[in-house]
Amino acid sequence: MSPQVRVRADGSVRPVRYRAVQPFAIFWLTLVWLALWGAVTPMLVVSGVLVAVLACLAFPLPPVKLESRVRPWPLLILALRFALDVVRASLEVSAVVLRRRPVRNAVVAVDLRSSSDFVMTGVAAMLSLVPGSIVVEARRSTHTLYLHVLDVPDAEAVERFRREALAVEDRFLAAFEPLPAPPAGADRDPRTESAR
């Protein structure tokens, strides 16, 4: 996905700069700046915002379309469950590594229910870190994730994994509740017009 672009008078293409400064990105970059300095003073906050704006202007990215409302309590559940899953995944993978039996794998297709790019990215990132699975291919047109799953003895385990993956998506959707769809005609993706 390329940044939004504008065509200049001479026909050359440039990314749109003014859209690149996004409040959410500025907030995160400022937090990173403060973490790097290890202290919070007014001077550091001001300089952090300044550096964040400059970074956004220097490297413009397409805006992240959240289109969802963040709910704190399900978000906490999501984070805790995720941390638990990461620890469990590591122990399971360690067990697979250390035992002698040869390992059987599977490549499983998971059709996500949501059609938002943001949800797909988030679920893919979480599944990559959670029990023995790696995203091999993500198909944006059908919102399908193809996951390589470690240690799958039979077809029943495949179905079990698919249910787990969809449960992750459910928790994600509970934490980032999607807003009602915009009226027809307004939902045209501006990126389809953007240059490759």
Partner: peptide, 16 residues
């Protein structure tokens, strides 16, 4: 035995 299995071992225990 194969690259994708190795990747499971490489990413998860490494991160934790």
């Amino acid at each position: 035995p194969d690259l994708l299995s190795r990747m499971h071992a490489a990413t998860k225990p490494q991160v934790i």
